[in-house]
Write a protein that binds this DNA or RNA. Structure first.
Lengths: 197, 197
DNA sequence: GCCACAACCGACCGGTCGTGCTATTTTCCT
DNA sequence: AGGAAAATAGCACGACCGGTCGGTTGTGGC
């Protein structure tokens, strides 16, 4: 069974994840976090021996959510082009739908930690590399299924795939461009078109 | 002539711009900034009546630099495809070369302010829309010169152009991928190829 | 029912933050 | 040279930061 403390701990991480979506991982404040729940700052702090430990758990939680909401459902789709399409759709959903306010966690952290070394950055880097690799692997499967060109550079495909997601986010969230999504889909279709046999 | 105070003010903004590249506009600290120069915190503060005023000036300065380093030199290139290529090259230089540490200022701010309303965000949004428009305008000129398809969706081109820059940044700066630049160029060449008559 | 321990509280630490207020120095114009 | 104006320093403020510590409360196993 779930012990009381463990349950509280989970709630803290979940709440911290939501808060970090608005202020970043570095901007997380133990005091604000504790006040948001009904907890004293020290009571909350006791669950993690440092702020960094909390940050790491929050990031890991975000990774878990991403796998659960984006990667896992895509992998249940038919291997090949359909799975690749589904991965792109879920990717867009994640970016745009994720909590309404605050954007894709990982892109925000990219700029928060690209010049801030440490364990948090290390975990972030690993997770992003895994993401590029996952996309490339799905693309490779589509090649093997004959849906895409045999000589396709799958890493290049993944690179451009990720880029479309990024510009979609800025265009949709910051610039509030109503055509952001249709442009992202058009870009993806063009990428697919030139990758076909 | 430049009055003493005005000169100091300029130096403050310039130094603040460098600092903000590492910690963001919100993370700017007047104390740290004043200590970095030889100035008291209050002496520095007196130049701007609020932190937000300083942030706005810093952002405007970044915009000026971007225009000076990227847009203006590109506009001196031959109209059409050459100018477009030059704009892309300068864009990559800006992202990668900009001070080594800290990445493209505007992308970092995108995530810092996409859920933080206020004058700083407003200025940022306007500058980014101007950037998309500038790219689209250069593309349109290339169409008129006959270098690109007459029925090309120039805004779509600009959208994908910006996206390539974004993934280049993450790939190069955060993930330290040595192939980041060649992948960005390959993506741009593919975009050009499918836009030609 | 008792005890050990996990969970939590509240006060507090040294430090930094942005921002006022009042002197004092420096610069500039006549 | 002198006096007005601009520039800067000194200082204090209230708020908040991450983190510590000793003590209190609640829970689970026996």
């Amino acid at each position: 069974m779930l012990t009381k403390g463990e349950q509280t701990r989970q709630e803290i991480v979940e709440r911290a994840l939501a808060l970090a979506g608005e202020v970043g991982l570095e901007g997380l404040s133990l005091g604000v976090l504790a006040a948001g729940m009904s907890l004293s700052k020290s009571g909350l702090f006791a669950h993690f021996r440092s702020k960094e430990a909390l940050q790491l758990e929050v990031l890991q939680r975000a990774i878990d959510h991403f796998i659960e909401d984006v990667i896992a459902p895509a992998l249940r789709e038919t291997r090949g082009a359909p799975r690749l399409r589904r991965l792109f759709d879920l990717h867009l959903d994640w970016i745009h739908g994720n909590g309404r306010r605050g954007s894709c966690f990982f892109m925000a952290l990219t700029h928060e930690y690209d010049d801030r070394p440490g364990p948090v950055r290390d975990l972030l880097v690993q997770s992003q590399r895994d993401w590029y690799d996952t996309v490339a692997r799905v693309v490779r499967a589509a090649v093997e299924e004959g849906h895409l060109r045999a000589d396709l550079d799958t890493d290049q495909f993944a690179y451009e795939f990720v880029g479309i997601g990024m510009v979609f986010q800025q265009s949709a969230k910051l610039l509030e461009n109503p055509r952001a999504e249709s442009r992202a889909r058009a870009a993806f279709e063009a990428l697919l078109a030139r990758s076909r046999p």
